[in-house]
Design a binder for these strands. Structure first.
Lengths: 344, 344
DNA sequence: CTGAAAGCGCTTACAG
DNA sequence: CTGAAAGCGCTTACAG
């Protein structure tokens, strides 16, 4: 490969071999402007023969465009984040933009990160929980930004999914269809905007039913130990609770784990519902009733928004994508097992 | 912010404000060479006042280093890939390298991707299933490469985890500790190197026990439909099977789902074990016995290897990281519930 | 310890 | 349709 040789091909060597100027090589390779078919063929042939790879840095420097987006993610993993990233990347690569992943750790130096980013990318997508509002504001002030699943902030675009209406529907399902009377919301409405909106739907459904919603059981994070602790707290302090509306599936799953350890029946003694429809939701017993959001599409939309912004579009209205109620058995519905109809 | 003003700060404006040459600014900002404390302070102050962000493209062009790595991933999501990416990113960012994510779709134009990458990054990590061997070879030939979880290929570094010994141990556990006699391996040994090595361990344990291993049940991919189909196939064609050794957790989980639909008891009628220790493994009932690999560490190691290669180190021996048997209940062991000891 | 100057490899008006 | 030339904003020998 030429690239391994004493010297890699440059636009000069391609031009020389094709017998044209470097301006012509540049034009042909970018597919802009007109160029006679003959010239075009010569250039393409020369580039191919020399195994020419344009130097992105030189291109960026001259054109004043990085052709790269950053994605700022928290360092937690999970299906939500990878789906978001994949959706974003798919669209970005179509637009010939690179995607640079930046992980935000608690001790991240925001100023240094921003300085770095400003010299490397044209825009950034901020994933949920990746940055607090002060940091978001700084980033927004420094470059075109699209926020995902958060509260809107001036100067930034936003992509999110419907929360309140679906949460109302979910809560109503428990209240009306299953006759539960003593629901408890588990999560932190004062944290992420998503959760706040879900809690608002929880409250709205209670209002419809003429019921007074109880205060949420605050918690963040989820693992087996936390789930078990929540279960014990519920049974110690909240007698009579007959359904749990959890801020997300992870929390719901960890609580179901705790309930199993404590021998508490789901959904008979206690119904449990979540949010996100993670893959695990369908594999647990009973299957977890939850809400699905189109995360991959949200990532794709975010990339489109950024692309439009860089093409000159102003900051627009929030893009809200639809969510969908996924009924399984943890709410009290009879198990509608997937493929059950073809059972022998 | 200066960046928003009529013109952003450059190394020239910083130098002018600090009353030094651009060479001095460059040196101070990169922290190289000596520089008097006084000069240093002046430069730092000027840079800060002007909110200067060095242009990465200019830096790359002059230094002939991109200070960026690519990560080539398949477009499937899952905990494995995000953990790998996070581990890689954490180390890369410490070394001040950007991480560019590239997703490989089936219709990816390899040549175009490679041309793009050669002009953008200094090295690449290839995640499992992201590229076939021919593509891998092309990439290796074009730039420093580290392969993860695959067969070694000349010219490339490799990071993987222990498969065969642990698979032998896992199989032996079923054979010896649980007295199972009729095991079936589910997966494709002829596909990924990882799976081949696991099947080798499966065979080795049989040899130890003086048993003849049966042919694997071939399948790739996993979802509820596939799991159910596998279950039906097993019961139609493989009478007497009393344990399933699955190539990965996803497969094991989908099969457990199918077994539940068919009313087949786990582990009594059929023991099931997996590989990976995905989060779901602990939430299903019974808990899935499996093998954990240090995926995040593998990503971190891959970044270190790349860093060393770019610093001049030659391609080295494969880096093998240890795996760990995670015993839960799907193998036939009594449920060792997490935190069970603190039950009331 | 510091500066002047060349050079990295492109893109893009500007001419023709 | 094509070329000559300026310029993008840095780093890095080379001097001193």
């Amino acid at each position: 490969m030429a690239e391994r040789g004493p010297e890699a091909a440059t636009i000069y060597s391609v031009a020389q071999r094709a017998g044209v100027s470097i301006a012509t090589v540049s034009r042909v390779l970018r597919g802009v402007d007109t160029a006679s078919a003959k010239t075009r063929d010569k250039v393409l042939a020369a580039a191919s023969e020399l195994d020419y790879a344009p130097q992105n840095s030189a291109r960026s420097l001259a054109s004043k465009r990085h052709r790269a987006y950053a994605v700022l993610m928290s360092d937690t993993t999970g299906p939500y984040y990878s789906e978001l990233l994949m959706g974003f990347e798919a669209v970005a690569s179509t637009a010939d933009e690179s995607v640079i992943v930046v992980t935000s750790t608690p001790d991240l130096d925001v100023t240094a990160m921003l300085t770095n980013l400003r010299g490397r990318v044209d825009g950034v997508m901020i994933a949920p929980s990746a940055a607090d509002e002060a940091t978001q504001a700084k980033i927004i002030n420094a470059m075109p930004t699209v926020l995902v699943g958060m509260d809107p902030l001036p100067g930034s675009d936003l992509v999110h999914s419907e929360n309140t209406t679906r949460a109302t529907e979910l809560t109503r399902h428990l209240l009306v269809d299953h006759g539960r009377r003593n629901l408890l919301f588990v999560g932190e409405p004062d944290g992420a905007a998503d959760v706040r909106a879900r809690f608002a739907g929880f409250q709205a459904a209670h209002a419809e039913a003429g019921l007074r919603p109880k205060a949420p059981l605050l918690t963040h994070g989820a693992n087996e130990a936390i789930g078990l602790a929540m279960v014990d707290k519920i049974y110690r302090r909240r007698a009579g609770v007959d359904a749990l509306v959890c801020a997300n599936d992870e929390l719901a799953l960890s609580i179901m784990y705790g309930l199993r350890l404590r021998g508490i029946g789901i959904p008979d003694e206690l119904a449990v519902v979540g949010w996100d429809d993670v893959p695990t939701a369908r594999y647990v017993e009973p299957g977890l009733t939850t809400v699905r959001q189109p995360v991959r599409e949200m990532g794709a939309r975010a990339a489109e928004v950024l692309r439009d912004r860089l093409a000159g579009a102003p900051v627009g209205e929030p893009h809200q994508l639809p969510t969908e109620l996924i009924i399984r058995a943890s709410c009290g519905c009879p198990p509608q097992n997937f493929l059950a109809s073809d059972a022998p």
